[in-house]
Write a protein that binds this DNA or RNA. Structure first.
Lengths: 198, 198
DNA sequence: GGGGTCATGTAATAGGTTACATGATTCT
DNA sequence: AGAATCATGTAACCTATTACATGACCCC
């Protein structure tokens, strides 16, 4: 069990027993789906895995003379412990990850530097849009009196976004600097590799 | 085809035709496996997908009177184009991702603030270790005269690491500040939720 | 009262990872 | 020469995503 959706399920069930559909609704309503990848199919799968692992258990299947039958799940003691341990580990120990931009940077030599500069400028505007979007929503929540702890994940995203913006700006000048810019050398090397195949 | 290992395969095959095992070796030798998740099984799968998509093709199966038969693949024209388009998109357009730390932050209220502070301190040392590891290796490469472009993905990682370190430090003081720290309120709320279930 | 959409799940398919297989080489 | 390890690939399994199914409610 390494799907983080499972952690969200465990966490939500600490509030009260729920059925999967309700969990999914809450996940979206509270915007946790921005931080934890969610789709309904995965949710049902994860819930079954949690049952198998003994971390949650079905407490009832209710039908309020309404819609399809719904199974309600509750957290077990083991589930509560596992949830806490899991969270502790995620906070205490940084893990190596593979963001898409890192992958792209590692292979960026295949593009011509002029094109790269244009693409980086495009990225800057995208990042900037994300940044204003997030910071506005954070400020709106704070203005409504919400405790900043509930926005801490977005605050983190903002910090990373700003670092990335700074990095991109720096990268552009590294390429284009008229004195020491990497552009010319890069372009030359690029021409080489484009000729050689034929 | 959204597996970034596929992008790496396309990119490597621009140099010359290779067999999968060789691609895997190079991926590790050049440290690209730090930026793109690699394991052998996935590599063979991805190669098959690329063949089906017409982006690469088998050019020979050689057996140098040695080990098992090896199939050598070469890039097609479509493959070259796809590789470039894919890279352009990754550079030009930021995508929403789901780092584990973001998920954890979004649910961190389930832990007691005192414990969170301890875990964040632990994280700081882990991040700091990563930081010195990366910056030493970058400097070593530069000292050997390697062009900084070949380290650009690690430079980016450094920038993000530093932003995360700053964020964590800030978060700790937000919790522990003797005037306005979130600790007391958080702890109280935490006690509430721990009582209610019973 | 029939067409749309909401609520809830299940099943089929595609994607990725781990475990296994097999001959060659190298070491002692 | 037998044990350990390398080189290479395949197959089995597990995970995740998409597509489908079904009855209720809601609107004109």
């Amino acid at each position: 069990m390494r799907n983080l959706l499972g952690l969200a399920v465990l966490s939500y069930l600490t509030e009260r027993p729920m059925h999967p559909y309700e969990i999914g609704e809450l996940l979206v309503a509270r915007d946790h789906a921005r931080s934890i990848k969610y789709n309904r199919g995965s949710l049902y799968m994860v819930v079954n895995q949690l049952v198998k692992a003994g971390l949650i258990e079905a407490t009832a299947t209710i039908r309020d003379t309404q819609r399809p039958e719904r199974t309600v799940y509750a957290l077990t003691d083991a589930g509560r412990g596992e949830m806490l341990d899991w969270l502790r580990e995620l906070i205490g120990q940084p893990v190596h990850e593979y963001p898409q931009f890192v992958a792209a940077l590692s292979l960026i030599g295949a593009l011509h530097p002029d094109e790269v500069v244009a693409l980086l400028r495009q990225r800057q505007t995208g990042l900037e849009q994300q940044r204003v979007g997030i910071s506005q929503s954070v400020e709106a929540c704070l203005a409504r009196g919400m405790h900043p702890l509930f926005q801490v994940e977005e605050t983190y995203r903002l910090a990373v976004l700003e670092a990335e913006l700074a990095f991109v700006a720096r990268f552009i000048t590294d390429i284009t600097d008229p004195e020491t810019g990497w552009g010319p050398g890069w372009a030359a090397h690029h021409a080489d590799r484009d000729e050689s195949p034929h």
